[in-house]
Design a binder for these strands. Structure first.
Lengths: 256, 256
DNA sequence: GCTACTATTATTGCATTCACTTTTTGACCA
DNA sequence: TGGTCAAAAAGTGAATGCAATAATAGTAGC
């Protein structure tokens, strides 16, 4: 009764994750599989903690086990899957604590991005973010949540880009991928009364950015993410029963 | 004439990098190779940009190509090596810009760690850091650079640990590994006149930590890393000629 | 003597195969 | 009927083999 949300339209920020290592992922079977498998997992096609039988995925992608296993190793190092010795790969299940940790790290990265952005951003980019901000404000007034979140993501992405730090951008994309499944749901669970608060925070963000107040912006962004964290963790606790067996398709039996 | 420095004694912080994914690296050949190869590269046994022929490494580790290739893929995703399609792996050569970016990201992570530490650190841990601080001050007075840097690293590590955020700790270890080679050299190149400055910054750090002034500590730590960044980049520029062909053993011909 | 083209060699990418561990199934015993 | 042990099945970990691409050397032409 709650989720039949069109995935792609709301979060088209594949771009962020894709950019980071697009060079090596475009050619070579391994790279393609890595990208496809990552997307497949991030989009929530396998249940949390669900087993990932190699053979099945091989059949699904039409390849042999070698490149698939290479991709799994990389995804494990990215924190998306767990690799149990001799017992296969599982989609990494995030505990509430890990989720909170991830949000804090995201907060740290955005905080850094804001600080650096104040050093490097150009007037024109501030103007663009300003434009987005008011557009988002329009969504807020019209209670258009989907539009709001789309632009919201875009603004944060623009700030990260304005840091002019590609290493930071790659790390940001990496961590964003790890929480995207949950963040997606959490956005919608966000209490309406918090919406106004978030909007106010965004005004502070814009203001600090205009004044190039790096340290200040840094604080605001961290606090902003802390509030998102609270919403996400709260949502996770509420729905923790449902998340164990979500949608699924493959062998989802999380028996143990 | 300049570098015959005992590696291990100065930077025994293998621990940091090892902790992050020690679970999966202890058993399984792939994991062991991953750890060994990472150490091998981090310790600077292959020249920057030097080719890494699979066969040779296989012989060196006494294994077949499969687990080695898996390890290389992971190291590529960690940013330690470049994987050129059909043309093998090379040790990732850091430009001055990338090095600066990495230091800023480290600054962001330490900044975050400081903020979180102020929320979570216990009195006893502050006391321990305080103790280390004064011990380090002793090294400063005695002009004992090696001791200074060892304790310096330890203090930063303790702050990161006090964040109580294992995700952050893992990310920190990851990025630390990427700059360790250069950082190692850069520490020694650090101008003596900057030493006093660094020592003063550390007093600010301790003070902010005592007062649990998270936001303030966050600023100080970022700035502290910025100064380290300046020293490292400066050193890199000075010695850029020498770094291309360092020590080397394997096929180091960085002909292109 | 230098450049361009071809043939040979070496190396990478992926598939396949073999060995070993885990899991499951079934039988025997309590 | 329930539990334990054993044997078979399934799945993973790593090595080998094969095809394709890039690097190298050698030859011919200018």
């Amino acid at each position: 009764m709650k989720r039949e949300i069109p995935n792609e339209t709301v979060f088209p920020d594949h771009s962020a994750a894709a950019i980071s290592d697009a060079r090596k992922e475009e050619s070579s079977l391994h790279g393609e599989i890595l990208a496809r498998l990552r997307d497949y997992i991030v989009e929530g096609n396998i249940a949390d903690g669900g087993r990932i039988p190699e053979r099945q995925l091989c059949a699904m992608f039409g390849i042999s086990r070698t490149p698939l296993r290479e991709a799994l190793k990389v995804l494990a190092s990215e924190g998306l899957v767990d690799l149990l010795p001799n017992r296969g790969a599982r989609v990494r299940q995030l505990s509430a604590r890990e989720l909170a940790e991830l949000f804090d790290v995201m907060g740290g990265l955005e905080s850094l991005a804001g600080r650096l952005a104040c050093e490097n951003i150009e007037e024109q980019e501030v103007a663009e973010i300003e434009r987005l901000h008011y557009e988002m404000y329009g969504c807020y007034l019209h209670r258009d949540m989907q539009g709001y979140f789309r632009i919201n993501q875009l603004i944060h992405q623009k700030i990260v880009e304005a840091s002019r730090n590609t290493t930071l951008m790659a790390a940001y994309a990496n961590f964003a991928g790890r929480i995207r499944r949950i963040r997606y749901s959490a956005n919608f669970a966000r209490k309406r009364e918090r919406w106004g608060e978030a909007m106010r925070e965004h005004e502070l963000i814009l203001d600090a950015l205009r004044r190039r107040a790096g340290s200040e912006l840094s604080d605001i962004l961290f606090q902003h993410l802390r509030n998102k964290q609270a919403a996400a963790v709260e949502y996770m606790d509420e729905t923790s029963v449902h998340t164990t067996n979500r949608d699924q398709s493959s062998t989802l039996n999380s028996k143990k």
